[in-house]
Design a protein around this nucleic acid. Structure first.
Length: 239
DNA sequence: CGTCTTTGACCTGCGC
DNA sequence: GCGCAGGTCAAAGACG
């Protein structure tokens, strides 16, 4: 996955319990950049790639990775809303083994594969899981659960129009036209790349330390997140 | 020739 | 102290 940064592989190891080797990469955009990432395939499903990032970039990120940093930070903040692990995440004094909150959403990639991506906001590391399962899904909309990704129902009981749209689709009462329009948006390569860049920006920036601030900035505003995504991908809200 | 990947060796932390 | 597992180093080879 091209995440906008340059990486140099410095090691590979076969971890216990997983026949697939784990690859170790170092950010090469700056000689002193401490950021590292690990990439490993899932033992249960070889089509799933698990990427873990560690550290904070000490250099400016390229536009492709930086343009949506705030948007994805907001997504991460949303993920942690109501999470029992979020405060531990912020304080850095995590001691419990609470189950990380996992959110999954789909966006079909340009190479005609369906990439089911999830962000795991574990206590120590945010993790991006990229499922490169071939596109045999009946509809990307069927499994599209971005509403859960950005859901802030406990903080903002008023559903956004987008949430209503998703809710309607899940309840099977969405008209074909709206479903087609939604699918068009989520299938838009620009939207996909914007979303992917947003994910990258978040994990690349090591934004965990900024989550409190981001949460304040975006609290109760999932519309802001999608507006930013739409703006970055050139899709109008009208669409 | 410079850059990147591969891969065995080495280092370190942890449990027993 | 010992063994194991995970992470890193660095020499060698591949590649453009």
């Amino acid at each position: 996955m091209n995440d906008g940064c340059q990486w140099r592989k410095y090691g590979q190891k076969i971890a216990k319990g997983n026949p697939c080797p784990r690859a170790y990469y170092r950010c090469t955009m700056s000689p002193s950049c401490p950021v590292r990432k690990q990439v490993q395939r899932c033992a249960q499903d070889m089509s799933i790639l698990t990427t873990s990032y560690e550290g904070t970039h000490n250099h400016p990120l390229p536009p492709s990775a930086a343009s949506l940093a705030s948007a994805t930070s907001a997504a991460a903040a949303m993920l942690n809303c109501g999470s029992t692990t979020s405060s531990q995440l912020h304080s850095g004094s995590a001691t419990s083994s609470a189950t990380p909150n996992l959110h999954t959403f789909n966006f079909p990639s340009s190479n005609r594969l369906t990439a089911r991506t999830s962000i795991t906001t574990s206590q120590s590391h945010p993790t991006v899981v990229l499922d490169l399962t071939s596109a045999n899904h009946t509809s990307s909309l069927d499994n599209y659960s971005s509403s859960s990704l950005f859901s802030t129902s406990t903080h903002n009981p008023q559903l956004s129009s987008y949430d209503k749209l998703i809710q309607a689709s899940q309840q099977g009462i969405l008209s074909d036209k709206i479903a087609a329009a939604t699918k068009a948006i989520t299938s838009n390569p620009k939207f996909q790349s914007a979303l992917a860049a947003a994910i990258t920006s978040f994990v690349g920036n090591g934004s965990i330390t900024n989550l409190d601030q981001e949460r304040k900035s975006f609290k109760g505003g999932e519309n802001i997140t999608f507006s930013q995504l739409f703006m970055a991908s050139g899709i109008s809200r009208a669409t």
